[in-house]
Design a protein around this nucleic acid. Sequence first.
DNA 1: GCGCAGACTAAGCGCTTGCTTAGTCTTCGA
DNA 2: TCGAAGACTAAGCAAGCGCTTAGTCTGCGC
Lengths: 211, 211
Amino acid sequence: MSLATSAGAGNSPERLHSPRVLGTTTADRLKEAAIIEFAERGFHATTTRDIAARAGLSPAGVYVHFPSKEDLLYAITLTGHEAALEMLQEAAADSPTPTDALRATVGNFARWHAEWFRDARVVQYEFPHLSHDHREHILDLRKQINAVVADILEAGRVAGDFDIEDVPATTLAVLSMAVDVCRWYDSEIRRSPESIGSSYGELAVRLVSRR
Amino acid sequence: MSLATSAGAGNSPERLHSPRVLGTTTADRLKEAAIIEFAERGFHATTTRDIAARAGLSPAGVYVHFPSKEDLLYAITLTGHEAALEMLQEAAADSPTPTDALRATVGNFARWHAEWFRDARVVQYEFPHLSHDHREHILDLRKQINAVVADILEAGRVAGDFDIEDVPATTLAVLSMAVDVCRWYDSEIRRSPESIGSSYGELAVRLVSRR
DNA sequence: GCGCAGACTAAGCGCTTGCTTAGTCTTCGA
DNA sequence: TCGAAGACTAAGCAAGCGCTTAGTCTGCGC
């Protein structure tokens, strides 16, 4: 499993691809505030006043940096999906065999959902609240994310390493396990994101390996 | 895999435990309207006017039958969790071996999430919006649901049929696959709920079987 | 037939929300 | 130092929201 060592500016070197810049600018502080609030309450139950207060601004301050509340959600979900996609592509590229690639991608994906569980909750569960065009763009990125794992499974099937009846369905099942981590994970959980990632990588390999 | 043959009143005999009465009373019509609206938009972005209109009532009509919008959500999530729990308990009780039990419970759970994907979305994703006491009660039911599957995995581990390092974590991973079905399933999907249930039951068994 | 209870409505209330406006303050570059 | 641009504020707007109130209508039981 590869650890991120070339992550973006401001990223803690032990954590996977940050889905946000750990912020010093006001816009970054606003994004972080919104992530916390959206993850806890959901997009619609979070007010711009909540976000502004958490970022230490007046309510109108949000509009200096983002044209609307929906644009703020879009900025968050876009950055998050791009970070996840990049991480998966790197993990896949760093792996010589389909089995290694599967272990690395699913393991990292699960770990990422734990490490950045608030960001991931917004990314996974709040994007349907975007306006139509924004949502379409996010759905494209999601298809790309899905395709990284599907391609690995197909390569393994063709190579005879994996025993899979239905690649798209298995892709979904495997991704589901990893995505769902952000739903149940929180700061009180006594398992480290690395440990979760490691076991999910093994579970994924076990699920598809030829017996 | 057992099909429901003793489901509640008004239930289609081909579908698993209905999480709602298919309604003729106004209260049932309101619950159904709310399920559709909440599943599509989420609790907070759904107005009582939306629900009332879909049920063919005036906005104040909601309050004749439910004391608040939150009570309506509680009624839906309570019935849904109880139906899911009952279905899992029956599937587990009908199975002679841990392997059969696992295949039946996970398979039925996945199928149920597909068949009743709108109800399941409300049940799985909207309950955090409940008031504190209501939410605590729902969390109790969720623990019971979790325990049905965890007990099967533990029985299989002890019997030597399953090779599992961490029963709670594996329970979560297995349930995650099934729960996530309601996120991606919709009426346009060209796989039947039965087929989804069948393959998820097999995937779960494959994930834990001793090799 | 009559009266009562329950289902339901139209109208409205008080509050909240996303956002705008008109200003002030701060920072940067010439 | 000065002026301009950008960051930010206090105040407010229009619309919408969950819910209440005072009535009407309908069905049921005596």
